[in-house]
Nucleic acid binder design. Structure first.
Length: 269
DNA sequence: AACGGAACCTGAAAGC
DNA sequence: TGCTTTCAGGTTCCGT
């Protein structure tokens, strides 16, 4: 269940599992998830190609293959890449598999909001090209972000989740960054001072580093799967005390999405 | 151009 | 217990 940190982990995993290897076989199990090429061409596009590079921008992963082709992967809400052995049967909700020697990598996605996009000649896809700066790979420029925020009527939280403004921040990371910055999620983006935008940039960097740290390990599982405990400060913590103030954390709906914040240390002002 | 809301899917958890 | 409702961290499309 992926925002930037989870996609970064998925990208590192794929690099470890497939980097430099030649794909012996590829199979698409659910044609719905593929874009950019006919489902029937999936195997042909990937088989016998060497994995030349795996990169990430925002929530997108790009797999570059020898011969110039590329495969883009977006995990949607429930997508996941897992490593199995070639002899292992299909996983529940498996949508695609890539085999390379002794490893078999499976794309699993119950809700199928995720996408694989084939680029037969490695041509950039709009979803990748239109992304804003990535906090991890590009870094965020507070002055530039401030200028963008000045030009919209949207709330600050909605803008932070706009992938064309910042690539990779989703509902959790936005809520967490705003809490760290002590900014109310519903504040009009244009009302923020440069100092407040600087605090938000620090908040984004800090929450991403924190989340990444949680998931850093040899056998990675996503944070907050059923049963796991919630490591966040405000996300999913309605009614529980704010770690700063002991005031109960509030929940509100913004643009159809749940937002969590502390009414005391994130005053609307 | 910009915004709210529904749609795309399925499973888990909460509610009754 | 079992049926129903609600909710889920993503994006996209459609009507206003």
């Amino acid at each position: 269940m992926p925002e930037l940190p989870e996609v970064e982990i998925a990208s590192r995993n794929l690099r470890r599992w497939l980097g430099g290897k030649t794909i012996s076989a590829a199979k698409l199990e659910s044609s719905r998830i593929l874009r950019g090429a006919p489902p029937a061409s999936f195997s042909r596009l990937l088989a016998k190609r060497r994995v030349a590079a795996i990169t990430r921008r925002g929530k997108w992963i790009r797999v570059d293959l020898s011969g110039g082709a590329a495969l883009f992967s977006h995990l949607g809400m429930t997508g996941k890449w897992v490593k199995r052995a070639p002899g292992d049967g299909p996983q529940r909700f498996e949508r695609a598999r890539l085999d390379a020697g002794r490893v078999s990598v499976r794309y699993v996605d119950p809700r199928m909001f995720g996408r694989l996009v084939a680029a037969p000649r490695g041509e950039p896809i709009p979803e990748w090209t239109l992304l804003g700066p990535d906090p991890l790979t590009d870094g965020l420029d507070a002055a530039a972000l401030h200028a963008v925020l000045q030009r919209t009527k949207r709330s600050v939280k909605e803008v932070l989740m706009d992938q064309a403004v910042i690539a990779g921040v989703g509902n959790i990371q936005a809520a967490e960054a705003l809490h760290r910055a002590r900014i109310h999620p519903a504040r009009p983006a244009a009302s923020l001072t440069l100092a407040e935008v600087r605090a938000i940039v620090r908040g984004i960097d800090a929450t991403i580093a924190f989340t990444l740290g949680l998931e850093d390990g040899p056998e990675i599982t996503y944070v907050e799967e059923p049963g796991a405990d919630n490591p966040f400060r405000v996300y999913g913590k309605a009614g529980e005390p704010c770690p700063r103030e002991k005031t109960p954390i509030a929940r509100m709906v913004q643009g159809g999405r749940s937002t969590f914040f502390c009414p005391r240390c994130q005053p609307f002002r």
